[in-house]
Design a protein around this nucleic acid. Structure first.
Lengths: 164, 164
DNA sequence: TATTGTTATACTCTATAACTATA
DNA sequence: TATAGTTATAGAGTATAACAATA
């Protein structure tokens, strides 16, 4: 049966790959006592100090979910809540030195392992994957809000990898 | 800056795409009162009646996690535990008619939405994505067990999409 | 003894609803 | 009133460790 060698269909390939990548992320994070959500969070905080609402939008989560996420990360010394001088209601979230160090370590591992998966591809194929998936991502950023239910917010659904 | 038009790097593209796909899965599942884990489970049960351990391996989970997953799915009428006639200790998990119906519905939506993401690609690019990601998946099935920690089990880490 | 599965326990993650404090 | 964030509550998902029953 040619199903393996000929390649899966477009949809199956994307879905299965997403599980594979998530599995890599989960295990890499776990090796440093982190969760995928925390790695995502720390990635965003690499070059920003967003407020809770901005974080919620970036992560595609409810603000109350972010409160919990930040509280747990804070109690582990990964991030810090700092007051927003311009708005008494708001706070800003900042990565600690520990948080930054762990992100770098984990990101390095993730990079190495994902790249290792790509070792079966040629250089050109490598670039092709990056290019074609980027096109899909751009489509996704706008599409997601439209296709599903009528009352969908166009959250930053994809989620940043590290910074970007 | 060419970063957008030129495409992300290989790693970033894969990671971000995995989040996008997972987001599609999560929302499609939720629209039918299901979770991603349940959709994965039901996908496996499309053409099999595995035991708990086999399920654990397929899903890359601990057997105790599978017990909970099955129990919740069972109490929702999605699956059923049936005795294994050959082994008094074992049971086999089977999808109910409801479970099968819901899987089909959700899978249809997922298919449509993922395919919609691919609408920005040409036919040829479509096939290329399927082909290249398939190569990565094959690599992942073996690699995952090797790259990380020394004591890693070679679980079926990727996770089936629907059947296969 | 080894294997199959469950239970007890503990976290993380997530959402909804209601609430506080500031704008 | 509207906005930023938190709290209370609830449920899913996951893991580890200890256990029961069968092989």
């Amino acid at each position: 049966m040619p199903s393996q060698s000929a390649g899966l269909g477009f949809v199956d390939a994307l879905v299965q790959t997403s599980f594979l990548v998530q599995s890599v992320l989960t295990k890499a994070a776990a090796r440093h006592e982190l969760t995928v959500a925390q790695v995502r969070l720390l990635g965003i905080l690499r070059d920003r100090e967003p407020g809770m609402l901005q974080l919620a939008v970036h992560l595609g989560l409810d603000k109350s979910s972010v409160t919990g996420l930040i509280s747990r990360a804070e109690s582990r010394g990964l991030v810090r809540r700092i007051p927003d001088l311009d708005d008494g209601r708001a706070i800003r979230v900042s990565a600690t030195a520990l948080g930054r160090r762990l992100t770098e370590e984990v990101d390095g591992e993730i990079d190495a392992q994902i790249r290792a998966l790509g070792d079966v591809l040629t250089m050109a194929e490598h670039r092709t994957v990056g290019r074609l998936l980027s096109k899909i991502l751009i489509a996704g950023e706008t599409t997601i809000a439209v296709v599903p239910p009528p009352d969908q917010h166009r959250d930053a659904v994809a989620g940043d990898r590290t910074s970007t």
